[in-house]
Design a protein around this nucleic acid. Sequence first.
DNA 1: GTTGTCACCTAGGTTGACTAGGTATAGCGT
DNA 2: ACGCTATACCTAGTCAACCTAGGTGACAAC
Lengths: 112, 112
Amino acid sequence: MRADILKGHLDLLLLAIVEDGPFHGYAVIEELRRRTDGAIDLPEGTIYPALHRLERAGLLTSSWSEVNGRRRRSYTITSPGKKAAREKRREWSTFALTVQRVVGAPAWPTMA
Amino acid sequence: MRADILKGHLDLLLLAIVEDGPFHGYAVIEELRRRTDGAIDLPEGTIYPALHRLERAGLLTSSWSEVNGRRRRSYTITSPGKKAAREKRREWSTFALTVQRVVGAPAWPTMA
DNA sequence: GTTGTCACCTAGGTTGACTAGGTATAGCGT
DNA sequence: ACGCTATACCTAGTCAACCTAGGTGACAAC
């Protein structure tokens, strides 16, 4: 998948993942790949700065640990982070429905 | 709606509109506003360069006309443009479903 | 004759993801 | 021993795309 279309949605993806338990940066990349069967496979140069930005914004906190001789920075979602995740989910929902209205033809099944 | 989250999807929106008949730039803006009840309301500085880009790419063609003493540049979709629209719709569909898988909780109704 | 709508344009700024480098440890194969 | 791959982190600078902020000009209404 072309990755530039993620623009503006990356924060939601990261918050949604870290919301499901502490993840370190590298593991976030793997988890994104796992949840999407490889469709979303982002480089470290995208993920690390984004996590730093979210931490600076107070939506995540991090702590260092060492596992098998390797340093890890693990991220946990904060209370404002959870709130932001809820808002961004809502935003995404609105956005997706709005695009659908413009381009017609629902992209996803509307029947079970 | 914050407009920066449109990044990468604008071309699809424009192709989808012009696909439904010739539109001039200003009318595209109005049509976007109309189809979304004002949710998507983009400035001319976004639309005009985007239409120029699509024309340079061969996905649209344009012709000048004059209506009520005002110059209009009307855009029509080309055959490659229709193909691109189909591809971008598919891309959008994939993207939307993929994001949904990552963030969980479907954003749109899955039952009628 | 000023204000509002229609209708076009572009140079330059901002933002956000990516490229392309770098550091360092562990494990595997040869 | 040496190289290669995987794990795990980092950042400076680039690039693409959208927006800001200006500009031109015609028409209609007050």
